[in-house]
Design a protein around this nucleic acid. Structure first.
Length: 972
DNA sequence: CCCCCCCC
């Protein structure tokens, strides 16, 4: 082979497209070659002229390698043996070694030194001027259909369109088999499932194929989907495969199927599921030794380094000299071999039973062949299973069949495996067999209760893994790990996100996620995916169709198939299937999901998370189990200021303020989103802003009316943001319960009634960027001095794009004036929608690019007011939320329902209020002049009720001050 | 396989 195989892998789309071009080039190139040019399966071409050979790589190979940037040749005169490295090609993607394709080797007589200056010549003319090496050799080279192929053979047999260097994971031979080589095993269909009808009206199927040791599911496609093709369970058939790299996973496609034996009574052997996921992981690392003992048990043990191509089994049979006496041919002859085994005399019993020639039902009292009757303890059986899956060339100390190397075919290892559980129940086999079955089933009962296929499936890998049934054992969520092969959990869906659409390089998809909580209050997140338009797959199927119709290409059909594949069963449909069914708050059993390491960035605090495909089994559970509705890990609000942004937090607090829903235009997307802000305080004496978006803003149970009664909210999975110190926002998995029946809620409510209402709550959200959570407490004059300093220094900030803001807390300031129209500033102005950003303001007013007029605009306040304290006064701007809190009337109400006089009254009432105010000073440039604008971001009114607390707080501040200036002085 | 979570 030419290069590191793994490095040759490309995305399906790029290689397929590249191959089309390569095929076109190749067709041109072939005509220019004399008939003495031959090709190899490893993608070299050899132009033979007497005893001189010019060797290069094929267009296909250069396409796979990518742009070649460096070529390294051997010295002239180097004598190469067959398979020696002949030269090295370094591409932008991989370093590839070209091996000497002449089996008997040769001597380097010339190298293409022009490539040293322009290595990309290999890409441009791989089969011409991009030749690599000339060799002198002995003997004769001619196309033999095996080592050397004609151009046509090469094109047909090796460089099939759609050759993605894929690998079929039917582990017939204990190795990964490359389907670029002829590969037509006879396998048993152990299960067939119809998956409905695709968009194009063609049926969708999944079959499970077994070689007696391993099984794997495969998707029939193309002509096999026609309704006259039958896949009968337990039948044996000759199969050919294709495989596609779909979304990074290998999908085994069944290309051809010819039944060679009618259905048997049962699954032969006790096949274990061959997991593509682990195989892919290993396969991606081709050059490494196979990994053993990593906890995956048998499955990895069966994975081996891909041997070089010439070692691959082919249709022509196993490698010479490897076949066992009494063995069988590879492919097509399994039935015969099967009979041979049956006809062998067996000690201790007659030889008949399963899989007899006519496939008729076993009669009562019939005994199994000895090899199926071995009364091994379960553990021993499993040990044998492990040995079975060992490296193919390793001799088995006791079992002659184990000496069979890769040439061994189906059923080779029956002697070391036992018959799997019987779907019809033990009695179908009668007699002693039934006893054996019962024993097995009892032995396995604690691990698996109703699995009709695998007798010994168990969690944690190693033993036989059944491919269809669900494990009935329910394990705690806490026991799940990435090694869990087969599990069922039971839990309540404590939250369920909306469906979200995403786009990535592979196409567009949808997802939703849920949180599952079990009866031990353990939680895990699970995600479901739909893939909508996986463009790479689209192309793959297109090309695969070409393979199977290689002799009968019909452009229209080809095109149709390509289009139809969009709706085919290869596309994940877990969202479509499960989103409507799964309801928040209900209890389900979940199985056949994948456990993955949680991504700490997005799922902080979690160890694992789950992914469910559309073959997941999820059933609603109605038995009454005590499972909490939502598990809260409540943090006090005060602790949030020390937490990092993007983390999630659960909290329980009082809603102190709540804004109405407003529409916000999202700057990046241009989409409109509803938004609601409210402030939550708890008994840590702190408050924080919470933002809720979209539908949740309407439906979260918190609104401006209810907020007047200061409800308690328990919030799960609030996301911590850094706006204005610390803030919170609701995301997909955030849950909000209002006034829940929970002791923690009552505690917080108590605190609020006793002390919290008093107003001594410290806001973690300052509404400004620069001040953080601990804005200095100032009087107005000090703030003005500070702002002057700030004005002078802020321009020198080294931080790019730092927002020049400065926040202060003003104690006991008086609202001394609220400006009216005609005064020196704008009055209560109604603005349309969300008008903070100029761009969104325009679009809100119908000036956006889409030109459509917004139906509804939310009036918002922007008012100017003066704050005064004993040191001075300052002009402050208050935006909608604060303005409404100050005036007690919403802008909308004022605009729609109030006359001049009423408005006057509102203003009079608001004036001369005493407040503790948080203000944000912002540097702005106004007609070439820098100035500081101050806005009111939060305030607490000082009322008669909280005057006492206010006074105490003030005394504290004074004492703190006195302590500083005179540690031994007296206190108030 | 997502991982965006928005605004002042």
């Amino acid at each position: 082979m030419l290069v590191v195989v793994g490095a040759l892998r490309q995305t399906a789309a790029s290689s397929v497209l590249g191959m089309r071009a390569a095929a076109a080039l190749r067709m041109r190139a072939y005509r220019s070659f004399a008939t003495t040019t031959v090709f190899t399966k490893s993608h070299e071409w050899i132009k033979v002229d007497g005893n001189n050979a010019t060797v290069g790589i094929t267009n296909y190979a250069q396409d796979q390698l990518g742009e070649i940037v460096y070529v390294d040749f051997p010295p002239i005169g180097t004598k190469l043996k067959g398979g020696d490295t002949m030269c090295t090609l370094e591409s932008v993607k991989a370093v590839g070694e070209v091996y000497c394709p002449l089996p008997k080797g040769g001597e380097v007589t010339e190298v293409n030194s022009a490539l040293e200056d322009s290595p990309s010549q290999v890409n441009e003319a791989a089969e011409g001027d991009g030749w690599l090496v000339k060799l002198n050799f002995e003997g004769e080279i001619q196309a033999d259909g095996d080592n050397f192929l004609t151009a046509e053979q090469y094109q047909e047999k090796v460089v099939v369109p759609g050759d993605l260097r894929f690998t079929v994971y039917i582990n017939v031979l204990g190795v990964l088999v490359d389907v670029t080589v002829g590969f037509h095993p006879t396998l048993q269909i152990t299960a067939v499932s119809a998956m409905g009808i695709a968009e194009n009206g063609v049926r969708r199927l999944r079959v499970v194929l077994s070689d007696g040791t391993h099984c794997s599911s495969a998707m029939p496609f193309g002509p096999l989907l026609q309704s006259n093709v039958q896949f009968r369970q337990f039948a044996l058939g000759r199969c050919t495969f294709a495989s596609a790299n779909v979304k990074g996973k290998h999908v085994v496609l069944l290309k051809e199927y010819e039944e060679v034996r009618p259905p048997l009574r049962d699954t032969i052997g006790n096949p274990t599921l061959y997991r593509p996921s682990s195989a892919v992981a290993n396969n991606a690392n081709h050059e490494n030794a196979p990994s053993h003992g990593n906890g995956m048990g048998q499955q990895n043990a069966a994975i081996h380094q891909n041997p070089p191509l010439h070692q691959y089994p082919t249709l022509d049979g196993p490698p010479q000299g490897k076949q066992q006496a009494g063995g069988y041919q590879y492919g097509g002859t399994v039935g015969t071999q099967y009979q041979q085994q049956q006809q062998q005399p067996h000690s201790g019993g007659s030889s008949s039973g399963l899989g007899s020639n006519n496939g008729s039902a076993a009669s009562s009292g019939r005994q199994l062949p000895t090899y199926m009757q071995q009364q091994q303890p379960l553990q021993q059986q499993q040990q044998n299973q492990h040995k079975v899956a060992g490296p193919p060339l390793r001799a088995h100390p006791t079992n002659p069949y184990q000496q069979q190397p890769i040439g061994g075919g189906m059923l080779a290892r029956q002697q070391s495996v036992t018959l799997g559980g019987n779907p019809q129940g033990p009695s179908a086999y009668g007699g002693s067999t039934g006893v054996q079955h019962q024993q097995q089933q009892q032995a396995a009962a604690s691990r698996q209760q109703q699995n009709p296929y695998g007798a010994g499936a168990h969690h944690g890998g190693g033993g036989p893994v059944s491919y269809r049934p669900v494990a009935n054992d329910i394990i705690p969520i806490s026991q799940l790990s990435v090694y869990s092969q087969k599990w069922t959990i039971k839990g309540r869906v404590s939250s369920k996100s909306d469906v979200r659409t995403f786009t990535n390089s592979r196409g567009e998809g949808q997802l939703f996620s849920i949180e599952i909580v079990d009866d031990q209050s353990a939680e895990i997140r699970a995600t479901f995916f739909n893939s909508l338009f996986p463009t790479s797959m689209y192309c793959v199927y297109h090309e695969l169709y070409l393979i199977i119709t290689a002799n009968n290409i019909d452009r229209d059909n080809k095109y149709k198939y390509t289009k139809a594949s969009k709706g085919s069963s290869f596309i994940e449909q877990a969202v479509t299937k499960f989103f409507p069914m799964i309801q928040q708050g209900r209890v389900y059993t979940f199985s056949k999901g994948q456990v993955k390491q949680a991504n700490a960035r997005f799922n902080p605090g979690a160890t694992y998370e789950l992914t469910f495909n559309d073959d997941a089994i999820i059933e609603e559970s109605t038995d009454s189990v005590e499972i909490p509705r939502i598990v809260y890990k409540i943090s006090k609000i005060a602790t949030i200021q020390d937490r990092n942004p993007d983390e999630f937090v659960d909290l329980c607090g009082i809603v102190t303020h709540c804004s109405p829903v407003s529409m916000v235009t999202i700057r990046n997307s241009g989409n409109e989103r509803a938004r609601r802000n409210f402030t939550i305080a708890d008994d840590s004496g702190c408050s924080i802003e919470m933002t809720v978006w979209g539908d949740m803003a309407q439906n979260c149970g918190v609104d401006e009316n209810r907020a007047q009664y200061h409800p308690v909210v328990m919030i799960k999975n609030a996301r911590i943001g850094s706006y204005g110190g610390r803030s919170l926002s609701a995301v997909g998995n955030t849950r909000i319960e209002v006034d829940p029946d929970d002791s923690r809620a009552f505690e917080v409510k108590n605190w609020w009634m006793q002390t919290g209402q008093g107003g001594a709550v410290q806001a973690l959200s300052t509404g400004g960027g620069g001040g953080g959570g601990n804005a200095p407490v100032s009087v107005i004059e000090v703030m003005r001095m500070d702002n002057n300093l700030f004005l002078a220094l802020s321009g020198q900030s080294d931080v790019p794009n730092a927002r020049p803001v400065n926040t202060h807390t003003l104690q006991r300031a008086t609202v001394s004036q609220i400006f009216k129209t005609g005064d020196r500033a704008r009055n209560i102005s109604q603005e349309l929608g969300d008008t903070y950003a100029d761009e969104s303001s325009k679009s809100q007013q119908g000036l956006g690019i889409d030109g459509h007029q917004n139906q509804q605009c939310m009036p918002r306040y922007i008012i100017n007011l003066k704050l005064a304290d004993m040191s001075g006064e300052v002009l402050v701007r208050a935006f909608d939320e604060q303005a409404q809190a100050l005036l007690g009337v919403s802008a909308q109400e004022m605009m729609q329902n109030m006359g001049e006089e009423d408005i006057e009254q509102v203003i009079i009432r608001a004036q001369f209020k005493k407040i503790n105010a948080r203000v944000r000073s912002k540097k702005e440039v106004y007609t070439d002049e820098e100035r500081v604008n101050v806005s009111l971001t939060d305030f607490t009114a000082i009322t008669d009720q909280n005057l006492q607390q206010d006074a105490q707080q003030m005394m504290q501040l004074i004492n703190t001050y006195l302590q500083k200036v005179d540690p031994n002085g007296s206190r108030i």
